[in-house]
Amino acid sequence: MYAFELTRPTSLADAIKALGEEDAQPLSGGQTLIPTLKQRLAMPSTLVSLSGIEELKGIKNEGGTLSIGAATTHAAVARDGSYPALSDLAGHIGDPHVRNRGTIGGSIANNDPSACYPAAALGSGATIVTNNREIGADDFFTGLFETALDEGEIVTAVKFPIPEKAAYVKFEQPASRFALVGVFVAKTADGVRVAVTGASEGGVFRWSEAEKALDGNFSPDAVDGLTLPADDMIGDLHGSPEYRAHLVGVITKRAVAKAG
């Protein structure tokens, strides 16, 4: 790692101020950032740790909307259980030690194309709350490792409307437990949402054809015959673009079956 200063503010206001310094970068659970720093792929002057800020932690269920502080760990979300599909997803990220450090805000802000949480946020139609504004999930995830966050802006909470039915299924890359393909399906009052992670070079996306088919008939059969083009799918040693495109259909059916 290159050398940097590490500061641990205890309030959001102090964190935002510290992030105003040149080349300052936020540090949440660090489960992606620390390996990145070790490979010298990032060179911040200052890391602003968010782990000491109590106002960024915790889970509140307010009239059917689950509001999760950005510095809440995957383990805490897994234990919560008030949105079962989300707790199930959180409980299968990485391994137990990673889940004790990694946070929802960090995962959402990093927007890894194979991460699980972006699928939950997009699939649930969540709202991403920052220190400046609220951003709908449809506008938040803008591409590979890219989000609508501005320089110096951080996620402070994620608000999930709890749907009628929902489930997440991932086809795991067994070494990393990232999703080779992961699909989050939610049946909401405004229709069905299907969010796919792990598959596209553009990161998480909604599969609108499947949403339309499932709107009329929320059963695995509704997805039969639907296909996705392999053009912009990820291809690597674990699976070709064609394989991933095929898996999206298979995993979507499994997710619908799991949602019941």
């Binding site: 641990r8 660090g30 489960q31 740790s49 137990p96 030690h97 450090r101």
Partner: peptide, 15 residues
């Protein structure tokens, strides 16, 4: 009380 990988956490975070 929670298990962590200590090579993936900064010492200052355990202050």
């Amino acid at each position: 009380g929670e298990s962590v990988k200590s090579c993936n956490m900064f010492a200052l975070e355990a202050d």
